[in-house]
Design a protein around this nucleic acid. Structure first.
Length: 943
RNA sequence: GCGGGCGUGGCGAAAUUGGUAGACGCGCCAGACUUAGGAUCUGGUGCCGCGAGGCAUGGGGGUUCGAGUCCCUCCGCCCGCACCA
């Protein structure tokens, strides 16, 4: 064999390991470049060819930047806390740490075979106590912070306490729930009295005991515990965050999810809603991901309006984006769960209302969503007064109003909103027209570009003007105000599981306290079983007191942190992974700074990518890092799908019929292992040996005597026998071929089916490249003459294009460019040492093993590793051609070619065209209106 | 319904600011060497036509000397959100 990739790859992987070729240290004399992959969860199934796609792309970039002289940080680690290991533990009793360890070893082995340039000395594992001690520390930091809206940043809770001590709540402008004080257990605050509305004096504060102070502070903390309505997944036995739910079911496992009020930890991410929105302007991500995040945050501008309840000392606050339509309000709808429903419902309607609420509660989230078109509702008997006209407006409850958005109440304007219109139609409520010259008898008019009518002081105005006017009026009368509402909710932060970070929290009574650093680190205690306790406590409640590394107060926190905790800051730990004193030193964080290029899947848009941005902003606010967006540029790699093959068995027999003839029989479609199929042709002998039941299979073949399979594109799964495994491909073709082929398949961003057919072409390219410097006997032969102009032209064309394409992250076109270059050099029989050296550097990011091998031969070992070779400089002068064949077109149609010196100016070209005899022929007596000369491309004669 | 993206040979795909559409690879066809090989090399390969030539980037229209690229419109596919007031 000429190109012995197995030998070469083994040799260089060993040498790189031995010499720590990819070790990187901070070096202020060099410019840094930080390339990051989304670290994987080490699952039991190992890697398939889809996983490395993004890793290869980032590896190419890391190596390219290194050639360019950058100090490149390119780390890898494992997001090793998670559900599968825990569920395996529940089934087998094996500790998740052991499963995880085993899976990581397997991942590492697979990754090593592909030849990645990771600095493994910087590896992190989120489940490692040395790592999660800092996750716990950051949690503590967030717990000990509040959000000051005046400075628009998070501050230590001590600054808040100081304000309380000096002036009470006066002058405190914190991000906090508007009616936070309603959640307080007032029996614990007898001195506040019944009119307490959240304000207290310095004297009040100082007179409170510690429990009372802590209860109040909890409402200000950025990490807090509260009774909140959460998504409870009974099958998984844990709560889930909104982003972990898809279509009303758990993202993992697809189990039903119900709404339940539970005492849970949350993160006050809502404090950062606006900054998370604004920060998107500063990062280079796809519009798609940015829009998903914008949508998730869900900012809407409008107004908050108070409606007085008729006959009650109560007001109902509504949020509306169309305050200009306020004169069109003909009824009000509350969410069934709205807190005032019970209070205002009249006796006459009480039974019907309660029935309606019960039936609404019985529906799961999914049922509600599926039932959108079915309008339901119930009158409460109560009325509110219109804030401007004083008119009595009936109050209804309806499922279409969501308790979790806005205030859980809407002012219904059937003329302007289709849902209100539908509701009004169904229950025969009035539909007053408030638009000039618009017919609303068939549907609502949602346009903002129509003039208002029947609207008192808003008549004749359009939406924009009327909105400003009505908000000013509401504010002047003290019955409403302009408001910005966000759809995003605070993120639930506790999980009732074992395999996650334990909280650094202990309890005195019901009050949680943060552990002091001197208390030592809480690590996961030993437990007998990984199930929740009989009375529904999280698994950690099973641990005996003496099995805890720290035990303080009355008890420890039994919840663990969610999967996104560890991944929200891992990119910072890579910068200083061994630091025992800090999560990372400020000096190193300042050096490595933001991730310059982040590659990973788009599925984390509303999870990991949002939470990382949130934590980064908190750390920035508190002065621990110098940037507030973690990922400067991001590219989302597409999924690689599997191409599965089918065979057709005639029912009731063991005879298989080729795809061309399958319709002549009654057949059953079966999946067949893709390794038994080549180019959709089945290897029938191998098929018989594949499974015992097929040992005596018979075949009906096509006219060519072959058995043809059909195919389908599915996700890769063992079930379909369509999993392509990188180890097999490395074995058969080599890591360099695999790397090149994955990049060659198409744009990295795109979803695409894996198809091994084309891999031969890429493999042949590497063999051709090898043979440039090896003769038929595989002897290394190069010449040291000066490169010929033709060789230089071919080489520099490649240098130019490869450099440009890498700069615009177009991985796939680079491979084609290099193939063309090698084809041309083969044609030229080029074995020039200098040319091959340059070409080898170009190829090295994609195919590092073969590049390193040839580099060693070409430099006779005198120039060190190709990894450090400077990127070839492009020289324009080698590309200059003496002549160029200009296609001459008449009115856009090419008629003939004219060979002219390329150095000619457009004016000279035009003169030459006019003078040419062919021109007169095609002019056919007509006149030339204009001659357009595009340098080196085309000449168009307009006649 | 709203938001984002896409549509180019038999297939994966190129075409960077509008400038010779289909580079490169697969597959296919023919040939060579040989002779059971899924090896290698050479040539061909968008469609119609013997040919000159004509037609081609989902359909239709527009701007332009010139459109895959820009504008309008319709059709189809993928992704995200979805009673968000």
């Amino acid at each position: 064999m000429d190109y012995d990739f197995q030998e070469i790859e083994k040799k260089w992987q060993q040498r790189w390991r031995d010499s720590k070729a990819y070790k990187v240290t901070e070096d202020s004399s060099k410019q840094k470049f930080y390339v990051l992959d989304m670290f994987p969860y080490p699952s039991g199934a190992g890697l398939h060819v889809g996983h490395p796609l993004g890793y290869i792309a980032s590896d190419v970039m890391a190596r390219y930047k290194r050639h360019q002289g950058f100090n490149v940080l390119h780390p890898m680690g494992y997001d090793s806390f998670g559900l599968p290991a825990e569920q395996y533990a529940i089934q087998t009793g094996q500790h998740p740490a052991i499963t995880t360890e085993k899976n990581i070893a397997r991942y590492r082995e697979q990754l090593d075979k592909i030849g990645f340039a990771y600095d493994w000395d910087r590896e992190v594992r989120t489940s490692d106590p040395e790592y999660y001690r800092w996750t716990q520390w950051i949690f503590g930091l967030i717990f000990e912070s509040w959000y000051n809206k005046d400075t628009d940043k998070a501050e230590p809770i001590s600054t808040l306490i100081q304000k309380f001590e000096e002036n009470g709540t006066y002058g405190v402008n914190a991000h906090i729930d508007e009616d936070w004080y309603k959640e307080l257990d007032m029996s614990k605050f007898p001195f506040f009295g019944e009119h307490f509305a959240g304000d207290f004096t310095a004297t009040d504060w100082k007179s409170m005991n510690e429990e009372q102070q802590q209860l109040i502070l909890m409402h200000f903390r950025l990490a807090y515990i509260a009774d909140s309505v959460v998504n409870w997944c009974p099958a998984l036995g844990t709560v889930l965050a909104n982003d972990e739910i898809k279509d009303g079911k758990s993202e993992r496992g697809g189990h039903p999810v119900v709404q339940k009020k539970m005492r849970q930890w949350s993160m006050r991410i809502t404090a950062y809603a606006q900054r998370l929105l604004d920060g998107l302007e500063k990062v280079d991500w796809t519009d798609n991901i940015k829009d998903i995040q914008r949508n998730w945050i869900g900012r809407s501008e409008g107004a908050s309006v108070f409606f007085q309840v008729d006959g009650h000392n109560a007001q109902i606050e509504v949020f509306t984006t169309r305050p200009d339509t306020i004169f069109g309000v003909s009824f009000m709808t509350l969410a069934p769960e709205h807190e005032l429903v019970k209070q205002i419902t009249t006796d006459e309607y009480r039974e019907a209302v309660e029935q309606y609420i019960t039936s609404a509660q019985l529906k799961t989230e999914r049922d509600r969503q599926a039932d959108v078109k079915n309008v339901t509702g119930q009158f409460t008997g109560a009325y509110v007064l219109h804030p401007f006209t004083g008119e009595k407006i009936p109050v209804w409850i309806g499922e279409y109003v969501l308790a979790g958005y806005g205030t859980g109440a809407v002012m219904a304007v059937p003329a302007g909103d289709q849902r209100d219109w539908d509701f009004a139609k169904k229950f025969n409520l009035p539909i007053p027209n408030i638009f000039e010259g618009v017919d609303i008898s068939e549907k609502a008019e949602p346009s903002k570009d129509v003039k208002l009518a029947n609207s008192d002081f808003l008549n004749g105005m359009k939406c924009k003007q009327a909105t400003a006017k009505v908000i000013a009026e509401l504010e002047a009368r003290g019955i409403g105000r302009g408001k910005i509402n966000y759809r995003m909710r605070d993120a639930v932060f506790s999980r009732q599981r074992y395999w996650g970070e334990p909280f650094p929290i202990y309890y005195k009574g019901d009050i949680p306290y943060l552990l002091h650093p001197d208390d030592g680190q809480v690590t996961l205690p030993k437990i007998d079983k990984f199930l929740p306790t009989e009375d529904g406590e999280p698994p950690l409640a099973r641990a005996k007191k003496e099995d805890w590394s720290v035990w303080k107060g009355d008890r420890m926190e039994y919840n663990t942190m969610p999967g996104w905790a560890g991944s929200s800051w891992y990119f910072l730990r890579y910068m200083d992974p061994k630091n025992e004193k800090e999560f990372a030193s400020r000096e190193k964080v300042d050096y490595w700074n933001q991730v310059d290029l982040y590659i990973g899947g788009a599925e984390h848009a509303t999870g990991h990518l949002l939470y990382s941005r949130f934590w980064t902003k908190v750390l920035f606010d508190l002065g621990y890092i110098g940037f507030d967006e973690p990922f400067k540029k991001m590219i989302n790699q597409g999924m690689i799908l599997g191409r599965s093959n089918h065979v057709y068995r005639i029912e009731g027999t063991n005879t298989f019929v080729t795809a061309e003839k399958k319709d002549e029989y009654k057949t059953q479609q079966l999946y067949v292992d893709i390794n038994l199929v080549d180019n959709d042709i089945l290897d029938t002998e191998a098929f018989k040996k594949w499974l015992p039941e097929y040992a005596d299979a018979e075949f009906i073949l096509n006219d060519k005597g072959q058995y043809t399979c059909t195919f389908a594109i599915d996700k890769m799964s063992k079930r379909w026998y369509n999993v392509a495994n990188p180890d097999d491909l490395c074995e058969k073709f080599g890591a360099d071929t695999l790397r090149l082929y994955e990049m060659f398949l198409g744009p990295v961003e795109q979803h695409k089916p894996w198809d091994t057919k084309g891999i031969n072409g890429v493999h042949n390219f590497l063999r051709k490249y090898w043979r440039l410097s090896h003769d038929k006997g595989n002897k290394f032969v190069v010449n040291d003459n000066a490169p010929t102009p033709a060789e230089l032209k071919s080489l520099h064309t490649a240098i130019k294009k490869v450099t440009e394409d890498l700069n615009r992250f177009s991985w796939n076109t680079v491979v084609s460019t290099m193939m063309i270059c090698v084809n041309e050099l083969t044609e030229l029989k080029c074995n020039n040492r200098e040319v091959l050296k340059q070409l080898t550097i170009l190829l090295s990011p994609y195919a590092p093993h073969i590049a390193e091998e040839l580099w060693e031969k070409l430099t006779e070992g005198k120039e060190g590793s190709v990894l450090n070779a400077p990127w070839p400089a492009f020289n324009e002068s080698y590309l200059v051609e003496s002549d160029f064949e200009y296609p001459i077109s008449f009115n856009g149609k090419t008629r003939f070619f004219l060979t002219l010196p390329v150095a000619m100016t457009p004016a000279e070209v035009e003169a030459a065209v006019r003078a040419n005899e062919n021109t007169a022929k095609y002019l056919d007596g007509k006149e030339i209106k204009k001659v357009i000369v595009v340098p080196k491309r085309i000449v168009n004669v307009v006649i």
